[in-house]
């Protein structure tokens, strides 16, 4: 059994977002790049599953669509424990384009995991699109994933609760927080071994993009906070009722 985790290279979550060139382009100056946090949790779970499978899961791979500058992120995934990696050497374009590229790699796997969204363009779409292109079942908002024999048991978050879902293989799991406790910190041994693990660079296949970013904007600045004295909480509540009409 083989698991593929699709990862993306995103700005660190504390990054202050700025744009340049007339707000047309994301300004990457000084940005620290990381594995998309949801993807990293997916990878962590995949590795836990492999380690606990007694050899049944023979391989965990990662795949990323992006140029060479995203390689440190891939190396980190290898250092954490992925066995090998694929990088499709092209600009990510849009979700449809990325899913088209990933499909070529994913088709050889039994389980494909994607983060529910990426913390940059936040489309929440690649995993779902990929599953449709592969004509595989997909389960979204996966917060727990277990494999016992050939049974895949999934806990999925729904509005107001959770469901336990089973899925046939192959399938695409779109994961969110909860799937693993915390991402792993790569150990020195892992970093050392990552040097030797295969990082396969693939040429992109012909595909189109269906969407395009025109420009970006920042949210309008908020008016200054209206402070109410701590001895006069009633005044706040009245403001909320009469001025803000919020209660």
């Amino acid at each position: 059994m083989k698991i593929l985790v699709c990862i993306s290279n995103v700005p660190d979550t504390t990054t202050k977002i700025k744009f340049k060139e007339d707000n047309k382009v994301f300004d990457t100056t000084g940005v620290q790049w990381i594995i998309n946090p949801w993807d990293e949790l997916a990878l962590t779970r995949a590795l836990e599953l492999k380690e606990g499978s007694g050899g049944k899961i023979e391989k965990v791979s990662v795949a990323l669509v992006g140029d060479k500058s995203s390689e440190p992120t891939i190396r980190k995934a290898l250092a954490i424990g992925a066995d090998d990696a694929f990088r499709v050497d092209t600009d990510p374009g849009d979700s449809f384009y990325v899913a088209t590229q990933l499909k070529e790699i994913a088709k050889d796997y039994d389980i494909v995991l994607c983060g529910i969204e990426s913390s940059d363009y936040t489309s929440s779409a690649v995993g779902g699109m990929l599953s449709e292109m592969l004509e595989w079942p997909s389960v979204s908002s996966v917060s727990r994933l277990n494999i016992e024999g050939d049974d895949v048991s999934i806990r999925r978050e729904i509005d107001g609760g959770q469901e336990i879902v089973s899925s046939q293989m192959p399938f695409v799991g779109i994961v969110q927080k909860g799937i693993a406790l915390e991402p792993r910190i790569p150990a020195m041994r892992g970093i050392m071994m990552a040097r030797k693990k295969p990082l396969n660079v693939l040429e992109p296949i012909e595909a189109e993009t269906l969407t395009e970013y025109e420009n970006f904007e920042m949210p309008p600045p908020k008016a200054a906070v209206k402070l109410v004295d701590e001895e006069n909480v009633k005044e706040l509540v009245e403001l909320l009722k009469n001025e803000a009409k919020a209660i």
């Binding site: 849009d94 979700s95 449809f96 899913a99 529910i116 969204e117 936040t122 489309s123 929440s124 779409a125 690649v126 995993g127 779902g128 699109m129 599953s131 449709e132 292109m133 997909s138 389960v139 979204s140 908002s141 999925r156 978050e157 729904i158 509005d159 779109i174 269906l210 969407t211």
Partner: peptide, 24 residues
């Protein structure tokens, strides 16, 4: 909707119809 269900289904529909998707 941009909720759990919408995020689960919309991308699949988008591929079926070859429709560009804008989320959120």
């Amino acid at each position: 909707a941009n909720n759990f269900t919408g995020k689960a289904v919309a991308p699949r529909v988008s591929v079926k119809l070859k429709a560009g998707l804008a989320g959120g």
